[in-house]
Computed example of a mutant assay.
Amino acid sequence: MGLLDLVAAEHPYIYDVDLQATGLPSVKPPASAARSGDHYERELLEAVVWLTCEVRPRALIVENVPDLVDGRALADLRKWR
Rank of each mutant, 00 (worst) to 15 (best):
L45G: 05
S36H: 13
V7E: 13
H39P: 00
A73Y: 12
A73I: 04
G71P: 09
D18P: 11
R42H: 14
L51C: 01
W80G: 06
L45V: 13
R81G: 15
E43M: 01
E63G: 15
M1I: 12
D5H: 07
A34F: 06
G37S: 05
R42V: 04
R58W: 02
V62D: 12
P57S: 07
Y13H: 01
I14R: 11
G71Q: 07
V27M: 10
L19R: 05
R81V: 04
V65M: 08
S32T: 03
L60E: 01
D16C: 14
Y13Q: 02
V69A: 14
L44C: 14
L45T: 12
V65W: 03
N64V: 13
H39L: 05
E10D: 06
A34T: 00
V65T: 05
L4V: 07
D5E: 13
E54F: 06
E46Y: 03
G2Q: 08
T22L: 10
D67V: 04
R42E: 05
A21Y: 09
V17C: 08
R81N: 05
V69C: 03
V27Q: 13
L68Q: 06
C53Q: 05
S36V: 11
V27W: 09
L68P: 02
W50H: 15
E46H: 14
V65K: 03
E43P: 03
R35H: 07
C53T: 03
R56S: 09
